[in-house]
Design a protein around this nucleic acid. Structure first.
Length: 316
DNA sequence: AAACCAGCCAACCGCAACATG
DNA sequence: GCATGTTGCGGTTGGCTGGTT
């Protein structure tokens, strides 16, 4: 993620156009070894940041964005080059299924790999591989709908794939983190109890996974132990919690899709968790559960819980 | 040898997100 | 609250390379 704080104290008041905005005298195209050396030496000496003014200071006729990109994707010592290993490929696949085209998030969990590299690898190799296996690379679902999915087919589809209109937060900004996959199969209507496919719901109930890495029970019990709302918001929003949430999704064998029935059930579980994650990001723990209670008169079945979550999510 | 084609990947571009004045 | 500046992200482009005809 961004680290704006690193630049706040040194923020420039320069209003004279620098190469980044003037486009005059800016060199484009492939970097020469001399330019690489200039940039690498400068960043090693002065550190990262202040990219906009860096070209002038480093004596480069490049745009700041170009310098940053070159450093991040190529010159940084931690960048790992070469073939993507099978375990890395597997990780990319699973992370993409969870996160969609959130390349920087995916790259953040694969040491040494850049978002650009993963994006390129996905577009040139992995997506084609999936298509050849009959899997839609955007949704990770079979390209052809299953013949017995008529129950789903009658329900208008809320398309939440990465190309769908983005989910917006209260300020109208795109909620980029996780809430793009919520309910690919159902459209939420005012009374969702009537719309929810009962068998799927029952399956979801029976196969409800126990997620030790990230379970709401632990959050709830933590809440009972005297933490303030602010503490909880901080807990939920921090990177470690999100990481453990991701880990719990990635490492749980229940979520390995080998059969269609499993896939259907597990996607519902995943959708539920992502919905809950979205809500917990948006509200405090108490607000989230309060909203659920008001929607459901607090009938504690998974079906109603899931339906309620989707109702709330789609209000935004 | 030349032309063509497809795949790969570095780099560019526009815009979102965020901090600060 | 708004304007402005900076950074970061994701989609896309275009040049290079290797294979094929």
């Amino acid at each position: 993620m961004r680290n704006p704080s690193s630049t706040t104290s040194t923020r420039s008041k320069i209003t004279v156009p620098t190469p980044c905005c003037s486009k005059v005298g800016i060199k484009k195209g492939p970097w020469t070894p001399e330019e690489d050396e200039l940039l690498a030496n400068y960043v090693k000496k002065e550190g990262e940041g202040r990219w906009r003014t860096l070209p002038n200071r480093a004596g480069l006729a490049r745009c700041g964005k170009s310098c940053r990109l070159r450093w991040m994707n190529y010159l940084r010592p931690s960048v790992k080059r070469g073939h993507i290993a099978p375990d890395e490929e597997d990780l990319i696949l699973r992370l993409h299924r969870l996160l969609g085209n959130r390349w920087s998030l995916i790259a953040g969990r694969i040491p040494g790999r850049t978002d650009n590299e993963i994006k390129n690898y996905w577009n040139t190799s992995l997506s084609k591989k999936l298509i050849s296996q009959g899997i839609d690379p955007r949704t990770h679902r079979p390209l052809k709908p299953y013949p017995d999915s008529s129950e789903m087919a009658n329900v208008p589809v809320q398309n939440c794939n990465p190309n769908s209109p983005p989910v917006l937060d209260e300020n109208g900004r795109v909620f980029r983190a996780v809430a793009t996959r919520v309910s690919e199969n159902f459209t939420v209507r005012p009374n969702l109890d009537d719309q929810f496919p009962s068998q799927v719901a029952a399956d979801a109930t029976e196969n409800w996974p126990n997620r030790d890495g990230f379970n709401m029970g632990s959050l709830q019990s933590g809440y009972d132990q005297g933490k303030t709302d602010e503490d909880h918001i901080e807990d939920i929003g921090n990177e470690d919690t999100f990481s453990s949430f991701l880990d719990s999704l990635l490492n749980d064998n229940v979520f390995v899709y080998q059969q269609r029935q499993q896939l259907q059930q597990q996607n519902i579980c995943l959708d539920f968790l992502l919905s809950l994650w979205f809500l917990l990001h948006k509200f405090s723990v108490t607000e989230t559960f309060g909203k659920l209670k008001s929607h459901l008169q607090w009938r504690p079945s998974v079906t109603n819980l899931w339906a309620g979550l989707l109702q709330i999510v789609f209000q935004f």
